Simulated scan of single mutants.
Amino acid sequence: MDFELLTIQDCPHGTAARELFRRAVELEGNDPALIAAREITSDEEAETSGFHGSPTFTVNGIDLFPSAAEPAMTCRVYRTAGGLSGLPSLESLRQAIQARLAA
């Protein structure tokens, strides 16, 4: 299982995203040490990686929160119960991981 966090330089949510992903992966019974982090550094890399903003959470190369937006070097927002946020909720991230692992 490949867990990867994709961010851009100076992402304001990068550190919190790493901690959130570590927690979610661990709660789903996986070793959080398996999480790789990669910084997206160009529009071309965003395009080839299917990167829709920072932070992006992937399992086996698949974005856990599919987006219809164009790939871009930008910040990303997630829908949460409290409105739009720079991070998904722990529960929605866990559900996305569960769905990906079951696929």
Results as ranks from 00 to 15, higher is better:
Leu101Ser: 03
Ser92Lys: 04
Cys11Asn: 09
Cys11Pro: 15
His13Lys: 13
Asn30Ala: 14
Ser67Trp: 01
Phe51Leu: 05
Asp2Gln: 14
Phe57Ala: 06
Thr15Phe: 04
Asp31Phe: 12
Leu84Thr: 05
Glu19Gln: 14
Gly29Ala: 14
Asp10Gly: 11
Leu90Trp: 00
Gly50Ile: 07
Gly14Met: 15
Ala96Thr: 05
Pro55Phe: 06
Asp2Trp: 02
Ala69Arg: 11
Gln9Asp: 14
Gln9Thr: 12
Ser49Glu: 14
Ala46His: 07
Ala36Glu: 11
Arg100Ala: 13
Thr41Phe: 04
Ala36Pro: 02
Phe51His: 10
Gly82Trp: 03
Leu64Asp: 04
Ala37Tyr: 01
Phe57Lys: 01
Ile35Leu: 11
Thr74Lys: 13
Gly53Gln: 08
Ser42Trp: 08
Ser67Ala: 13
Thr15Arg: 13
Thr58Ala: 06
Asn60His: 02
Ala96Met: 03
Leu84Ser: 03
Met1Thr: 09
Ile8Thr: 14
Ala81Ile: 03
Asp10Thr: 13
Gly29Val: 11
Glu19Asn: 12
Gln98Val: 01
Phe21Met: 13
Ser92Met: 05
Gly29Glu: 09
Ala37Glu: 15
Ser42Glu: 07
Ser67Asp: 05
Glu19Pro: 00
Gly83Thr: 04
Thr56His: 04
Ser89Asn: 05
Glu70Gln: 08
Thr15Lys: 11
Ser42Gly: 07
Ser85Val: 00
Leu34Arg: 15
Ala24Ser: 14
Ser89Ala: 00
Gly14Lys: 14
Glu39Thr: 12
Gln98Ala: 13
Ala81Asp: 12
Gln9Arg: 15
Phe21His: 05
Glu28Arg: 14
Pro55Glu: 05
Asp63Ser: 06
Phe21Gln: 07
Glu91Gln: 09
Cys75Trp: 08
Pro71His: 09
Leu5Tyr: 09
Ser54Gln: 02
Thr41Lys: 10
Gln95Val: 00
Cys75Thr: 04
Phe57Ser: 08
Leu27Glu: 14
Thr48Phe: 09
Gly61Lys: 09
Thr48Asn: 13
Cys75Ser: 04
Val77Gly: 06
Pro12Phe: 05
Gly29Arg: 03
Glu45Pro: 08
Gly53Thr: 00
Gly14Asp: 15
Phe21Val: 13
Asp10Asn: 12
Ser54Leu: 04
Glu26Trp: 05
Ala102Met: 03
Gly82Lys: 08
